[in-house]
Amino acid sequence: MKIIDSDSQGQTEIKAESDMVAVRKIVRERAQTLGFSMTEVTKVVTAASELARNIYRYADKGIMKWYLLRRDSQQGLELEFVDNGPGIDNVELAMSPGFSTAKGLGLGLSGAKRLMDEMELDSRSGQGTRVVIRKWVSNAR
């Protein structure tokens, strides 16, 4: 499903506040290139911003990898956020709207999931976190 060539994937570090702007810029460019509508682009960029901020806030540093996807005639974008931070004690609780341990609205994970087509979360306490989100360009355009 992933297109594996050098133009179709990449990664960027998240370790400073300014890296969130870099993440948004990369994701915006990729999403625009794929032909997402303006609203879809905004949704993907916003979801990426939430997940990048989670890394910066809870794990100090991590990376975002991006991949262009193809499934039959459909194209999509996959973003993977990986860190070696404290991990999540209770994944189910962390996914519920309004749950927050740090200063925030508690919308990061649950909000990102609503904005995307697919989301996978892999985390264990003390062993870091990996979040994968995907969005497909809708064909009905």
Partner: peptide, 11 residues
């Protein structure tokens, strides 16, 4: 696009 996204995000 921002209004749509904000609402779906749950703001």
């Amino acid at each position: 696009s921002v209004a749509i996204t904000a609402t779906q995000l749950g703001l």
